[in-house]
Simulated scan of single mutants.
Amino acid sequence: MTNFVLVAGTWLGAWAWDEVAAQLRAAGHDVHPLTLSGLAEKQGAAAGLETHVRDVVDEVDRLGRRDVVLVGHSYAGIPVGQAAERIGDRLRRVVFVDANVPVDGESFLSGWPSDHVRQSIADHDGFWPPLGAPDYAGQGLTDEQIARIVDGSTPHPGATLTEPAVLAGASGDLPATYVKCLLDGDEPMPAVAGLLKSDQWELVEMATGHWPMFSQPRELARVLRASVAAT
């Protein structure tokens, strides 16, 4: 049995993993989807990037488990990647699902044209408002799946996107799987491409879009189970 801690990206909470979690539990694993501070049922909680890192570390501490696989989707790759080095030998593997990875001194918004996001955060009292249904087109999602995402999304705390990551070591030293969703682009971002040169990292491709927990939950669960065999 492996202990999975699942963390979704911007605007989403633990609920986003319902179908994936059911598949993993059916295979005999212990699964703990986590909502980060300020999102979903935790709306109203003040949150910066360090808050989200602590959310993940505290969940591992609360569980009191070893052999932990941390899974971070999209934005959540940044706090999950930082938490992975903090939990030490309790970590079995970290899986980045079409995710950003932490780069010391850089934020989620670093390295890409993000002025519009910063302006949106400023215009919405420090929060990044969720996307609308048209923004999910071309990502392998049904209308029903898109509606579920849009209806469940909540504004994302802006400080978590603008504050820099802090790393003590090299992410390439972590045992890691990177899941690239091909409808969201054929190639991993440059920071990820560099890390994939490490012997500790493996690349897995999925023929779906950026939200595979909705578009292909069974396939994503299989990928997560297979990542355990990689260690």
Rank of each mutant, 00 (worst) to 15 (best):
P155K: 06
Y75E: 04
G169T: 14
P157N: 09
K197L: 08
Y75D: 00
R118G: 15
S74A: 05
C181E: 00
A46D: 08
V103I: 08
W128M: 09
A99R: 02
L70Y: 00
G111F: 06
D184Y: 14
T208L: 00
H73E: 05
L109D: 00
I87Q: 04
S215Y: 11
P155N: 05
R225A: 14
P129G: 03
V179E: 00
D115E: 10
A8S: 12
D67E: 13
V56E: 00
G209P: 12
G138I: 04
P157Q: 09
A83I: 01
L220D: 06
G209H: 10
V94P: 01
R62M: 01
V69M: 09
A14G: 05
G185H: 05
V228D: 08
T142S: 14
H29G: 15
H210L: 10
A168Q: 14
R54I: 05
R92N: 04
D55G: 11
W201E: 09
F127Q: 14
V69H: 02
L70E: 03
S110C: 09
S110M: 08
D104H: 15
G72P: 06
L183S: 03
M213P: 07
D135A: 13
A137Q: 10
R25M: 11
P217N: 10
A159P: 06
D123H: 11
D173C: 09
S153W: 07
K180R: 12
V31G: 06
Q82I: 00
P129K: 02
G77C: 04
E19K: 12
G140M: 01
L131H: 13
G28A: 08
P134C: 08
W201A: 12
E187Q: 10
L195I: 12
L91E: 06
